[in-house]
Design a protein around this nucleic acid. Sequence first.
RNA 1: GGGGGAAUACCAAAGCGGCCAACUGGGACGGACUGUAAAUCCGUUGACUUAUGUCUUCACAGGUUCGAAUCCUGUUUCCCCCA
Length: 428
Amino acid sequence: MKDFIAELRWRGMLQDMTPGLENHLKEGMKSAYLGIDPTADSLHIGHLVGVMTLVHFQRSGHKPMALVGGATGMIGDPSFKSVERNLLDMETLNQNINAIKTQLAKFLDFEGDQANKADLVNNYDWMAPFSFLEFIRDVGKHITVNYMMAKDSVKRRLEEGNGLSFTEFSYQLIQGYDFYYLWKNKSCSVQLGGSDQWGNIVTGAELIRKKAGGEAFALTVPLITKADGSKFGKTEGGNVWLDAEKTSPYAFYQFWLNVSDEDAGKYIRIFTTLDQESILHLENEHQEAPHLRGLQKELAKQITVMVHGQQEFELALKASSILFGKSSLEDLAALDERTFLQVFDGVPVLRLSTEQFKALENTTDLLALDGMIFNSKGEARKMIKGGGVSINKVKINDPNAEVAMPLLQEKYLLVQKGKKNYYIVKVG
RNA sequence: GGGGGAAUACCAAAGCGGCCAACUGGGACGGACUGUAAAUCCGUUGACUUAUGUCUUCACAGGUUCGAAUCCUGUUUCCCCCA
């Protein structure tokens, strides 16, 4: 059995824990849970810190439990949120829960018969049959409103004056009861969570103490930050999701590859299961040859493989080298159609009939057609003069040149506006 | 209520009768360099077209002039000072 706390510590994943937890875990196999509210039909990388904590917990020989909040998801956690959340309906919640289950299985071992196999629970199962009267008699009695209001997370909402409904206020009580329930029925003695969950988790431990005289522990992981101060896990396109439909494996891979040097070391500790020695080794290499970005590449590889699998990773790698490497017309032409379409998955496609294509007088006409690539011919010309347009990886210099590029696979042209904007022209 | 000032393109800020589609800085977008980075340097930044052209802009509505963002009148908004 490995030392879970020590593991988190060197990885920089330990924000806070209740006293005694370290000794508690040394007694033998324990069980810990992490709650995830099914607010969307996919996890995003913000969830990953918590999930990785569970992963390390399992790797340390303990039993992890993931709790999807079918009940709490209906309420909405007010912690550090400035406005009242929207309620989700049952149907959406169930879809979300199922999607999240599938994603969790990529990280945790739910199969097999080993003692520490991961479990998935849904608090809807025990909250739904619970009547309101029973709840306030059995649970509400043990925790005072004074205690609940003293939490930072609640206090802030009260001070801001945006209001806090009773529904959201009761969230911490429900989460507290979850902890109690799992402690009582599943011998779960530890709750993990983000640092914003500290208050909620402690309420649960308090409930266990008051209601049953039991002992339970809390452990929180730090909020992930970025060296430049901007918010972690966001791109211009919004959240970085684990669902390939929402964030393509390529975009996912790119996100990690583009992590700054300062952040890469921190992230590789948190988001991969590489051991300390390997990481130090990678960091040394990175020190010596920062331009190779070995650290980012390994980080991106590890996570992409874990989330999307080896095959998707290789495709993302291929796409990256074609899009950003020194690839040439030959490289492009060498791709078979299927790979080509996969590499350029998500790139806008401009469809042209063969007649339309033949009728084009010059390159500018092509680029300004439909206003999709450029809004006007003038704009296209300017960009060409500025050296910002390539077709099939060959830079265009003359706006009036005829369209004489060979069609890839007899039907595609790859248009590049600037470095990162790709368009496909499909003829026929 | 009285007095003074300001309104300019994405933002900031020049211009004060023709040389103004409007200096300059920031931002944005391109290019070079590079690590798909940072820093730096260069270019573009009203629209359409590509001729060295047309059209629409300098709060709004009128006016004076061959000609105005620049002068006059009114309207609106904002700021400052006195009450």
